[in-house]
Amino acid sequence: MKARVYVTYKPGVLDPQGQTVCQFLQNHGQAKVRDVRIGKLIEFDLEDMPRAEAESLLTEVSSSLLANPVIETFRVEMP
């Protein structure tokens, strides 16, 4: 089964990469772009298992490794 984990900076944490991309877009005619934040998308291929089990597995690896709770949050997504 497939699953995705999104890791993003918490609000307020400086994202210089996002700022640079945002400024670039604004300077290149995309005046309607207000802000850009860049995060990570991590795709999983898991053995088939009950949805709740997969969710708890992904929450476990996300909170212990994929995201640093000091600066990041994560979201688990299963189709």
Binding site: V13, L14, P16, T20, N68, V70, I71
Partner: peptide, 17 residues
């Protein structure tokens, strides 16, 4: 040490990139 929680805070990308 920050990642391991032995020190507080985190180190992120330099502001200059």
């Amino acid at each position: 040490l920050c990642e391991a929680g032995l020190l507080p805070g985190a180190l992120i990308r330099n502001r200059s990139l």
